[in-house]
């Protein structure tokens, strides 16, 4: 049996020092993913640094009118925050579309970002997986991959990042505040997660010992009209087959500002830069939305059983943008899920 050490520091610096960049040290937030992986044998840390005692449990308004969200804030608290609901409805909706009530009560913002793929091979230590065991191979490419990537994959890995919240944060251009062993720095959320390339074992650009302390949201004006749309097998408590986070500002029938990100299509929340670029100044019509999304999805390389994600993302995105463009659309958009 592998025993592990457990520490629960009360300051970020102490947490980072305790971790020390050791390869078998892990930060523990809500534990909703890490503890499962420990039970499966995917993770067997020698040291758990519990970061739930750090002073990162607040959601503060920043001087520029944005929000500074502590990494230890629970998913359910962030979703329910009145400022988030009013100014960043896409974020609140994304959070509520994820997991179950019980899990959202436990899961933290930082942990949500750093959760691992739910690829079945990654979670099965009896099978090869390049992300878990570099160089062992990727059976998912020819095997069971319905839930896996259509964008940005590599021959070594076709995993997806499972977070809903991160897709909204990517659209909102959140900044990730990192406390590392050599000081603090800021990483744009869209650059936090890596595409697999030759190193699928590295999910993010974080260095060993780096601790996410906060997420910062700027005052994104168009976010007041934003929406998160998620397609999934089950009405609740299942990961996205595909999802879309969208914010739109239309003036005189023309797109002035737009933000668009896709979930469950890649190893990172997929900010649709190409589509956004094409849409700026374009007519706010379903046709131009579709053309823009198609341009973004041109790079898609579906696997045998996940080609449905291409029309799914397209339809979700066109619907989200069309609804946002329509006069009748409320700030929060339609809630596609049963009320909780």
């Amino acid at each position: 049996m592998k025993a592990f050490r457990y520490e629960r520091p009360t300051q970020a610096g102490a947490a980072v020092a305790a971790h020390g960049g050791a390869p078998d040290a892990r930060y523990l937030g809500g534990g909703t993913n890490l503890v499962d992986l420990m039970k499966l044998g995917v993770e067997s840390p020698g040291l758990l640094v519990d970061v739930s005692g750090l002073p990162h449990g607040l959601i503060e308004t920043t001087a520029d009118g944005g929000l500074r969200i502590g990494a230890a804030v629970r998913n359910s608290d962030l979703a329910a925050d009145p400022r988030v609901r009013a100014r960043y409805p896409v974020l609140s909706q994304a959070l509520l579309a994820g997991a179950s009530g019980q899990l959202r009560n436990a899961a933290t913002v930082g942990g949500n970002l750093l959760q691992r793929t739910r690829c079945l091979y990654f979670q099965d230590v009896g099978k090869p997986c390049n992300k878990r065991e570099p160089g062992s191979g990727c059976p998912a490419r020819e095997g069971v991959h319905r839930d896996l990537a259509i964008l940005g994959a590599s021959p070594h890995c076709v995993a997806t990042h499972p977070s809903d919240m991160a897709v909204a944060l990517a659209a909102l251009e959140a900044a990730v505040l990192v406390h590392g062993r050599h000081g603090t720095r800021t990483v744009p959320l869209t650059e936090l997660h890596r595409l697999p390339g030759n190193h699928p074992e590295r999910d993010t650009v974080l260095e060993p010992g780096d601790l996410i302390t906060h997420i910062e949201l700027g005052p994104v004006e168009e976010a007041a009209r934003s929406v998160y749309r998620k397609a999934r097998d089950r009405a609740s408590f299942s990961f996205a087959l595909a999802s879309v986070a969208a914010a739109l500002d239309v003036h005189d029938g023309t797109v002035r500002r737009v933000r668009l990100a896709f979930g469950a299509v890649a190893a990172k929340p997929w900010r649709a830069w190409t589509a956004e670029e094409r849409l700026r100044g374009a007519p706010a019509t379903p046709e131009s939305f579709a053309a823009a999304v198609d341009a973004e999805l041109e790079a898609a390389e579906p696997l045998r059983d996940n080609g449905f994600k291409i029309p799914l993302v397209r339809n979700l995105a066109v619907r989200a943008l069309t609804d946002l463009a329509s006069e009748r659309s409320s700030a929060g958009g339609r809630d596609p899920e049963p009320s909780r």
Binding site: R118, L120, Q123, D124, K127, P139, E142, G143, V144, D233, R234, A235, S236, F237, S238, E337, P338
Partner: peptide
């Protein structure tokens, strides 16, 4: 609408072996 066990021909087992991947109906369904 939900339940499905996929035989993984390379390994000879059913791929979905937990209740996160083998979807059974929840109350909302």
């Amino acid at each position: 609408l939900l339940e499905h066990s996929t035989m993984d021909p390379a390994f000879g087992d059913h791929a979905e072996r937990d209740l996160a991947s083998y979807h059974v109906a929840v109350a909302a369904d």
